[in-house]
Design a protein around this nucleic acid. Structure first.
Lengths: 342, 342
DNA sequence: GCCCACTTCGAAAACGATCTCGAAATCCGA
DNA sequence: TCGGATTTCGAGATCGTTTTCGAAGTGGGC
């Protein structure tokens, strides 16, 4: 159906080519194509046909040079392999995907020098704005130098409160988890989580403690079991926990991986989940949570949505608005590892 | 140390500004900054100082408009959330990261229309080349329309053999897995894998069968156990397998998730891994393989390297070379789920 | 003092699109 | 058929950089 025009020239067609073919000036061709200015209907049709025939695509460089707007955005991520950057990145893509914005992807590998280098390159490409996405929630130093375009920080907030940061409410997430366990009728709740050096671990623990306090309760062992984020810590901590506090009837885990380890140990020890002990994870990492035995209830941080919001806020900021920072709550995804008693 | 110059103008400085400050013409300023042409040393220094003072960054749009080269590349991925795109994407980033190439990221979400739309946008931005990365190894239709820039397909090859495709040698991967199990002294080897609708599943099975045939052996059950790629299939298939063929002493799994399921079931049935039954996975997905009990030996497809090669080949093609398609072998990552007998 | 070779510099064109504003074409009624 | 109002169109400037090529400046040898 699409008869490729016989254009042996490898050089992409320019507006001049279109104008020549249509027998008009470039000015008229431009107006006809963009629907601007006064162009007779017949002329417009002639130009559009010519453009179609040559499969003309306007040179975005020339357009950007003139208008000062490129319709591009820089996406700086500190670690691509990180689990958190990807959904956020998808959200950003979604936010722009429909429109005419393209996204430059830059991975700084967590190196400040490299980041600086990328920022320089992006600015020289005259991006309209920047999105900085991190993989830890600990506040990060803002981009160095005076950036002449709007910047939005996602997941990992800027240390400068005047910057626009879109983050996750980890305190609320911890609260959410505990409230669910309480609603399931559990009262002896422990918290096994990752490295206390992470703000995320401390925040979730804080939310958990607060929710328990509201119910007149405290954590089993009086404090969280801080460790690392992986399965083996989950297994080890669960062993300790069951030994020291066999009365435990629910465990809030700081990550789904920890939760997997906990599930394994509980199974080994013959403790039924969720009947004897409920387990709830964090992150809702499908590959980990959706196919365990039993399938894992978890807190989902809506990272994709976070990314989409970041894109929207950046877009608004480019338009001249001055959006403030925002913090988003997670949601609970219920599966079989938590069930009401009775 | 870096005293920000007091430049109240928000408009980024142009070469004209630099030239004026240095007291030379724009032509001279350009030559001084790019090290081209004949410029007296003293003049060059003056220009460079002026540029530094204004923190001048050349407008890449103007440069690209003139030279016809933008130093940008489009990266089309079919699914960002897919496990395979990400390492490849990192490799591509790495391949260009050091240089002056920037990468446009576009996620087509597996939708051909959307892909077409993105291609159009990228071409209008005058990218120097395109990389198309897929998430299945089944050959895909090449990009529609006549693309005026080089294209490299990664992981997912183009159906057109004249295109440049950089792929994984899944047949070789299957062979690798079996040869390792044979080297460990196993003889009764089964293969539990994913959906037979996937080329990857068929290729790996083919390689496995070939390696066994070379040793005068065949698969337990005479054929692979095709199913799905997840843990629950691994558990179910392992149950069947042990019941029907208790003599099995090794299981080659088509994915690490399947392998996790298999490990679970073997544990339930009291079969020691690796002593009674060795288990090997595929993908070497760290989060899944590195913390299981026992830790999982797996085939790593070097996806990051694949991406890096794709970047290099694209770069060569942009330079005028005509690289051919390539297929890369995986490597085995040894952990404790396979051990030599004795 | 003169001429030539060589170095250093700048004016201007070019890339491709958009926008302004003046010129040309068209239409209307009288 | 003509004058004026209204469309419709096009020449040229513009964005910021690179590159060409000619002009100017410098120095040296005789």
């Amino acid at each position: 159906m699409s008869t490729e025009p016989e254009v042996p020239t490898n050089r992409p067609p320019t507006l001049t080519d279109v104008a020549r073919l249509a027998g008009v000036s470039v000015a008229t061709a431009s107006k006809a194509i963009n629907g601007r200015g006064e162009v007779r209907a017949a002329t417009r049709v002639r130009v559009l046909e010519a453009a179609e025939l040559l499969s003309f695509a306007p040179n975005a460089l020339a357009r950007g040079l003139l208008s000062g707007r490129t319709g591009t955005v820089g996406l700086l991520t500190s670690d691509l392999e990180g689990r958190f950057s990807i959904p956020i990145l998808m959200g950003v893509e979604d936010a722009f995907g429909a429109g005419q914005v393209s996204v430059f992807l830059c991975d700084a590998r967590g190196d400040a020098i490299r980041e600086q280098h990328h920022v320089r390159a992006l600015l020289s490409r005259r991006v309209d704005g920047l999105i900085v996405v991190g993989s830890r929630t600990d506040p990060r130093p803002p981009l160095a130098g005076n950036i002449p375009v709007p910047v939005v920080y996602v997941y990992d907030p800027s240390a400068n409160p005047d910057d626009i940061s879109i983050t996750v409410d980890n305190v609320g997430g911890g609260r959410l988890a505990i409230e669910h366990l309480l609603a399931c009728g559990r009262r002896n709740i422990a918290h096994i989580t990752g490295d206390a050096g992470f703000q995320a671990a401390r925040d979730r623990a804080e939310g958990a403690a607060a929710a328990l306090a509201d119910a007149g309760l405290g954590l089993i062992g009086d404090r969280p079991y801080f460790g690392s984020w992986d399965e083996s810590w989950g297994r080890a901590a669960a062993h300790m926990l069951v030994e020291q506090h066999p009365e435990t009837d629910a465990i809030f885990c700081g990550s789904d991986q920890i939760a997997r380890g906990v599930l394994d140990t509980l199974r080994d020890l013959g403790r039924d989940v969720p009947r004897s002990t409920a387990v709830i994870g964090f992150d809702n990492w499908e590959a980990i949570a959706a196919d365990s035995r039993p399938r894992l209830t978890s807190i989902d941080m809506n990272l994709k949505h976070l990314g989409a919001v970041a894109g929207q806020r950046l877009f608004a900021a480019i338009g001249g608005a001055v959006p403030g920072s925002e913090k988003f709550p997670g949601r609970i995804v219920m599966r079989e590892s938590t069930l009401p008693v009775g």
